[in-house]
């Protein structure tokens, strides 16, 4: 009994509440349909394309960032390899310069040595030539002096000297000559 009274009281109050707030199923239906229609139209002609473009932009940004990261990495790698290449080229150039310097030095030394040898040979040859010519001149001078001596002695002694005496005199003259 008590429960039914409470329920009835509740129902009466609930019904009064509905009247007080003007609850009407027609209005509920109108407002529901209105909202569903607006939500559908908003999404169909507005938010769908906005959401799609936002996703597309996000993908592009992500790709752009990824590309920028890749480029940064590639740049770092390129710079590192460039530095390595530059270092190796520098070392190679230094080697080339050093070897060129060494080669030039060696060529210079060799030239110097060859010149020294050539000059030494020339001096030797010149000395030899001088000695030969001196010897020849001396020989010629000796022969000429000997002949002169003989001729003088011949003219002095006339016909009294023998061939043996002549030869002895020539030998003596030869010894006396320096």
């Amino acid at each position: 009994m008590a429960i039914s009274n409470v329920l009835m009281f509740g129902m009466v109050d609930f019904s009064g509440l509905l009247d007080k707030f003007g609850i009407d199923w027609h209005l509920l239906l109108i407002q529901s349909l209105n909202f569903v229609l607006v939500a559908f139209l908003l999404y169909r002609f507005g938010f769908r394309s906005v959401a799609r473009v936002m996703d597309e932009r996000r993908e592009k940004i992500e790709l752009g960032l990824k590309y920028a990261d890749d480029m940064k990495r590639e740049k770092a790698a390129f710079e590192s390899s460039r530095a390595q290449r530059a270092e190796s080229a520098r070392r190679e150039a230094e080697g080339i310069v050093k070897s060129a310097k060494d080669g030039a030095k060696a060529i210079l030394e060799q030239g110097k040595m060859e010149l020294q040898q050539q000059s030494a040979g020339m001096i030797l040859n010149a000395e030899k030539e001088i000695a030969r010519r001196r010897k020849k001149i001396l020989g010629d001078a000796k022969a000429e002096i000997g002949t002169l001596v003989v001729e003088v002695a011949k003219s002095v002694l006339a016909s009294q000297m023998t061939d043996r005496d002549r030869n002895n005199y020539a030998a003596m003259a030869e010894k006396m000559l320096p």
């Binding site: 707030f21 009407d24 209005l27 509920l28 529901s32």
Partner: peptide, 11 residues
């Protein structure tokens, strides 16, 4: 209006 909010809640 409670009709509107109730409609929103029911949907």
């Amino acid at each position: 209006d409670l009709n509107a909010t109730l409609a929103l809640a029911v949907v």
